[in-house]
Write a protein that binds this DNA or RNA. Sequence first.
DNA 1: ACTGGCGGGACGTCCCGTTGAT
DNA 2: ATCAACGGGACGTCCCGCCAGT
Lengths: 197, 197, 197, 197
Amino acid sequence: VPRVSADFLQARRAQILDGARVCFARYGYEGATVRRLEQATGLSRGAIFHHFGDKESLFLALAEQDASQMAAVVAENGLVQVMRDLLEQAEPGSQRPDRIDWLGTRLEVSRRLRTDTDFRASWVDHSAELAGATRRRLTRMREAGSVRCDVQVEVLAGFLELVFDGLVAQLAMGRPAGELDAVLDVVESTVRRDGAG
Amino acid sequence: VPRVSADFLQARRAQILDGARVCFARYGYEGATVRRLEQATGLSRGAIFHHFGDKESLFLALAEQDASQMAAVVAENGLVQVMRDLLEQAEPGSQRPDRIDWLGTRLEVSRRLRTDTDFRASWVDHSAELAGATRRRLTRMREAGSVRCDVQVEVLAGFLELVFDGLVAQLAMGRPAGELDAVLDVVESTVRRDGAG
Amino acid sequence: VPRVSADFLQARRAQILDGARVCFARYGYEGATVRRLEQATGLSRGAIFHHFGDKESLFLALAEQDASQMAAVVAENGLVQVMRDLLEQAEPGSQRPDRIDWLGTRLEVSRRLRTDTDFRASWVDHSAELAGATRRRLTRMREAGSVRCDVQVEVLAGFLELVFDGLVAQLAMGRPAGELDAVLDVVESTVRRDGAG
Amino acid sequence: VPRVSADFLQARRAQILDGARVCFARYGYEGATVRRLEQATGLSRGAIFHHFGDKESLFLALAEQDASQMAAVVAENGLVQVMRDLLEQAEPGSQRPDRIDWLGTRLEVSRRLRTDTDFRASWVDHSAELAGATRRRLTRMREAGSVRCDVQVEVLAGFLELVFDGLVAQLAMGRPAGELDAVLDVVESTVRRDGAG
DNA sequence: ACTGGCGGGACGTCCCGTTGAT
DNA sequence: ATCAACGGGACGTCCCGCCAGT
């Protein structure tokens, strides 16, 4: 018999994940010390590690959550629209500046994929999730006639993913979002049926 | 009065930088502990810190060196060609697999730009170097008639930089290079005068 | 007014003590973490601390129980017989291998007597219990004519206790029991009336 | 080229070992926290772990040193004499009370042999060292005619070791040494040619 | 009676940079 | 110029015990 309701437990996990997200985004994996995680979540070491075991597990849970959410958005709105939203949120005047914390998470995932073999092994599944969403959507759009036919869907998907990863990297680096809107126009017209836009 | 020749000193610095590059690339900034730097350079803590003061300075020197080299290559061959070379070197069968260590350095730069305010301030100059090289080259090419005119050079440069950063990120993450050749064809045709390639 | 019967309460205490005994024996006092105690007893932290207050109290209760039981056995069968039983139980083919868990408890008592002043103060009474049992039995045996007279009972008791503690230590260390049977013959003949056995 | 002479290095190791010995003896393995080790050795964490890697290695080195020294003493003076020396040193009025710190070390070895499988595996060699010294000496003494012949040397050695471990345990527990002199007389006469002493 | 979320202290480890010696 | 001994801070982990809730 659990002491608290499942809802409460879920809320606690969310509280920790949300705090951890801004912490990892701001300071990076190593920079997100346990003390900072305590501060960001408003909970103690004991509480955090009671729910997540260790820092690695916490980060993995966070990364999985973000990856799933992003895959869902891509499936519905497409990768280009996701990038447009990203730009809007990254604007200085944006009313939802906190929504792009997952951006930092994604970059940390990149880094760990590069330096940590074990992490790479445990990530392949989640990586495929997003890739699949993009390809399915492109195929659908092509059948609807709004995507160019002279290039394979596989290649177009790779192109969009490349641009997306570049956008994530540049926004994370602090590049001003304003200059990038026109660039996304070029990207979009490249994928559309009439290449000239 | 220096106790050794300036050449020798320069060689020592290069030896340390080369060892440090593979170390930072493989383990990341935090993961590149002093012990590993000692191992990779074949020198001791004392020698390393004698030449570079501290780890931060060493990394900054390394990043500057790599950024300059890359700017030079871009100025000569263009960003697209750099990306093609990148792909070739990242192939499993490549004979020069070590040449892409600067890739890891660049990603670490990204990460520190995001999390370390001081570092960001000291990097703006080097960032402008590469951006300038790209824009100058595009302008020259457009005058030569091989770059499309319906989009500003500024936007095309931003586009190429976006793709480049995406490529760096994906290669670093371990994405197989083989799939990306066709993607680069799309990128190249997007920039060229006749959009269809 | 107790909410459950005294019998039930006693049974719970016994359940905890039994689980804790194997835990302390296997991992030592510090190694017997609360998590392991939970696992070994099948109860939760809350239940354990509800009955015993803290880890120290639990260990003390356990040690007292084992000391009393051993004193009773010594009073009836004598220290030598206890040692013989010990050997038999320690044999690999023994059918009651779990009966010697108190052996580990006793060693932990030794260790805490050495390092923990408070514990030593609270243990003197229980220590006297066993010593008294041994001396009373030896006196009785000497009056019956089966124990040598040229040495004081006090000394013989000290001798047996020395051997006993040595046996406990060696068995706990994992020394094979087989070699020790003949040694106990020597011990027994040393105490008996005709020293030659 | 070492910065300091080998002698100095050896002295440092000895300084650390000596401090660690009293620390392990007084507080036990777990109780000998790194802070206490710093205090006892007069050196910092950095220095200690520079020489010994980690706490486990430090303890193992200490245990090996003590085991070797004891084996040497046994080979020369015999186990009984070692026990007599032990008693003398343990007397409250002893002038060399610190010499018996190895006693605590030995008990910690016992405990780790019981609870730590890895440690047991790495200890077998050192255990054999002492056992061999005892047996060789007994054989020599028997040939000289001062040890009884009706019992195998192997058994007598086991007997002495048993008594020795018991003595170590009791002294460590704080049992007064005074009562034990007469007990050792009994032990000695048991081993000698004419059992009566 | 019992549960388990939680606090917060302490532990062993590791790491960076200093320093005095060579 | 180079080395390694060394200091001392900070890290992630784990642990014990409390207590609110069932």
